[in-house]
Computed example of a mutant assay.
Amino acid sequence: MLTTVEQLSTGEYIAAVPALVGYMPTNTIALVFTRGRMIELAVDVALDQDRYGCAAHLAKVAETRNLESVVIIAVADKHHTGPAIDFTTILAEEFNAVGITVRARAFTARLALGAEWSDLDRPVGGVITDTTATAHAIAAITTGRRIFADRRAIAACYTTVAAPAPGPVAVAAAQAAANSAGFAAATLRALAVTVSINGEPTEVLAARVSIMLTTDTTACDALLGVATIDLATAAAIYTALANQMQGAPRMHALAAVAYLHLINGSGTDSLEAITHARAEARRIKVEDNALMNTVTTGHDRIIPLTYLRGLLAVGTIAAAKFGLDLPGIS
């Protein structure tokens, strides 16, 4: 199951702050905003300013952007502890006033492995975990800010599960459904719902998508159309599905993942995905498909990114043939 904001502990939010804001802050308030099951925005706030005016402004911005909840984290040394904690109280009051849920208020003296943190509203606390590992774990549910993870951690994302093919019950159910009219359309709708809610890419869905990618070439293009709902979420879900597949379906799914990461500015992820797609193609002794060749050319900077993004239009057109009205992307 994919990580969601509900599954993150306060300690994990704290450990992810350096990756979210892009540096190692000190004497700062970090705000991590969420919407639905995703992290939408991370903001670092200096202590030496008009705290009431700043809090009111941030609450208004969050309300305007339809953000739903926030984690407030104070990072301050002993000389700034009092003002930092007071600032978190002011911020919490302003966010509550506009209907934004405060998931937690927390304090730590420093952002380092093993440093202690405390919850400012509950008698709990802990120590900060490995910031590198946490950054990678949290990246899949973060939009708006790119988190750069360790290369080995990225590569590990493309490892097939112990039994990559879905189980016999899931396969039997998918095969029975495949014989009915509208199988591909129903499968794409289920996939679209999963992407829209950052849901779990189940064994049954993996079996259905695997059959669909084997039997319907237009449906392969429609994967890119479904991804326009949310590129980052789709890439994560398609990866999880691919890891439950073998053969041509895994190759097709990973090609889509590589493409989505490429146009979304995640070159390392794209390179790992296309490497695994090629490995699967070699294993089953088939040529790279057209999308794999396009991604490879894109890595070589021969095709402009604007043109590559235009391929999403092909995906939305393909999805429309199955009755899916998707947003597309400019």
Rank of each mutant, 00 (worst) to 15 (best):
A222I: 07
T268W: 00
R283F: 07
A313M: 05
C220A: 14
T316L: 12
M212G: 08
L312M: 10
P249N: 12
A206Q: 04
S270Q: 01
A258M: 02
D288P: 01
A273L: 06
Q244S: 10
A256G: 06
E287T: 08
T217V: 06
T316K: 05
T214R: 13
Q246T: 14
V257K: 00
A242I: 02
E280G: 02
L311A: 15
A222G: 03
M245D: 02
A320G: 12
R283W: 03
I237M: 06
R208I: 01
L260H: 00
A219G: 03
Y259T: 05
Y307K: 14
N289D: 15
A290G: 03
T275N: 12
V295L: 09
L213I: 04
D300L: 15
T296N: 09
L254T: 03
A242H: 04
T297L: 15
V209L: 15
A318Q: 08
A207Q: 12
I274F: 05
R278S: 07
V286K: 09
A240H: 07
V295M: 08
Y238H: 12
S210F: 10
I263P: 00
I263E: 06
A219W: 05
I237S: 02
L262S: 01
G247V: 08
L254N: 03
G225H: 11
A235P: 00
L260T: 00
V226T: 03
L271G: 03
D230R: 11
A313H: 11
M251V: 04
A258Q: 01
A319S: 06
I229L: 15
D221I: 05
N264P: 00
A319H: 07
I237H: 02
A255H: 05
G315H: 10
S266Q: 07
T214C: 13
V286T: 13
T214L: 14
P304L: 13
Q246C: 08
I274C: 08
G310D: 07
I303Q: 05
L271D: 03
A281Q: 08
V204K: 06
L308K: 00
T296F: 08
P201C: 09
A319G: 04
I317H: 12
F322A: 02
E287N: 10
G247S: 13
T316H: 04
A207I: 04
T316C: 05
V226H: 02
R250Y: 03
T268N: 05
E287V: 06
A248R: 14
A253H: 00
L271F: 07
A248H: 10
C220G: 08
R309S: 11
E280L: 10
D216I: 06
H276G: 00
I229K: 11
I302D: 08
T296C: 05
I284P: 01
T202W: 08
Q244N: 07
Q244K: 13
A320T: 03
A258R: 00
E287W: 05
A235K: 02
A235M: 03
L262W: 10
R301E: 14
G267S: 10
G315A: 13
I284M: 13
T239G: 04
A227G: 02
N243S: 06
R282M: 10
A279F: 08
L312Q: 00
T215C: 10
D288M: 15
A273N: 03
N264T: 11
F322P: 00
L312S: 01
A313G: 13
T294P: 02
L231P: 02
V209P: 00
T268M: 11
A318N: 06
V295A: 07
D269F: 10
A319C: 03
A248S: 04
E203P: 00
N264H: 10
V209C: 09
R278I: 12
L311C: 03
R309A: 09
